[in-house]
């Protein structure tokens, strides 16, 4: 049953919303593109793991993700979801389909500015539990550009996976304390179209870096929700470590 947005908002206590924003990681529309792993690790033979929880009215998905950076221009990532949903007609609770991707990047460094263009082929594998609704192999592709100066970060990512096509935009400001940690305060706009309809989500993103730890939180408002599957607003929180 699809609940109206106002009803969904009532289900999220004020304290929970802001508590989630203060501790978190990763984009809700995570399909072919790589939100946090897009930034790190950016060094040869680096690796990292992260976990994040993505909550919508329809389901709660816990992602376990890993990345290995052969060199800054070549990485491989693996994402494995675990889905928890009451809507058994639409979703199968349990392990979902894993996504394997190979982000390829070309970096440009000039003075106090760094940027990169990226192309990321990906494949979604039928690793879901036996009652999964989708046991097909799917392929995807992402084209991205991101840049960072001492004060501004921006990311533009066009992606496709299976029947989905979308764009994700992050833009915002960076604050470094000069002692090894940084805050990113970004605004995110995610638009996606698929056989299930279309949606536009937008909202604030907070990212915190300290040494080898990344924490990211997002809250997305459903500015347009004509998607038969998607349900209203969403929250994503998570934490990752790189080595």
């Amino acid at each position: 049953m699809r609940l109206p947005l106002k009803q969904f908002k009532k289900r999220l206590p004020f304290g929970f919303t802001f508590g989630a924003l203060s501790i978190s990681i990763a984009s809700v529309s995570t399909l072919a593109h790589q939100p946090v792993m897009d930034m790190a690790p950016r060094w040869n033979s680096g690796y990292g793991v992260q976990t994040r929880i993505e909550h919508t009215e329809a389901k709660t998905t816990t992602w376990l993700e890993g990345v290995y950076t052969f060199k800054p221009s070549v990485r491989v990532t693996l994402k494995l979801p675990y889905i928890d949903s009451d809507n058994t007609d639409r979703y199968a609770s349990g392990t979902g389909n894993a996504i394997l991707a190979v982000p390829l990047k070309r970096y440009h460094n000039n003075g106090a500015f760094t940027s990169n263009w990226g192309i990321t082929p990906s494949v979604r594998m039928p690793t879901g539990s036996s009652n999964s609704k989708d046991n097909d192999w799917d392929t995807g592709l992402s084209l991205s550009y991101s840049s960072e100066s001492r004060s501004v970060y921006q990311l533009y990512d066009f992606y496709t996976l299976d029947d989905k096509i979308g764009i994700d935009i992050n833009y915002g400001f960076v604050f470094a304390d000069g002692k090894g940690s940084s805050w990113f305060t970004l605004w995110d706009i995610s638009a996606q179209e698929s056989n299930d309809g279309e949606r536009i989500l937008t909202g604030p993103v907070l990212v915190y870096f300290k040494s080898n730890t990344i924490v990211r939180a997002e809250y997305k408002f459903a500015a347009l929700d004509n998607d038969d599957v998607w349900k209203g607003d969403s929250i994503s929180i998570g934490i990752g470590f790189v080595y």
């Binding site: 060094w43 040869n44 680096g46 500015f113 090894g180 080898n212």
Partner: peptide, 16 residues
């Protein structure tokens, strides 16, 4: 060092 603009950038370089 060109491009080293954030604390997380510095982490990787210092590590190496």
């Amino acid at each position: 060092v060109h491009g080293i603009v954030c604390e997380f950038c510095s982490y990787g370089v210092a590590k190496k």
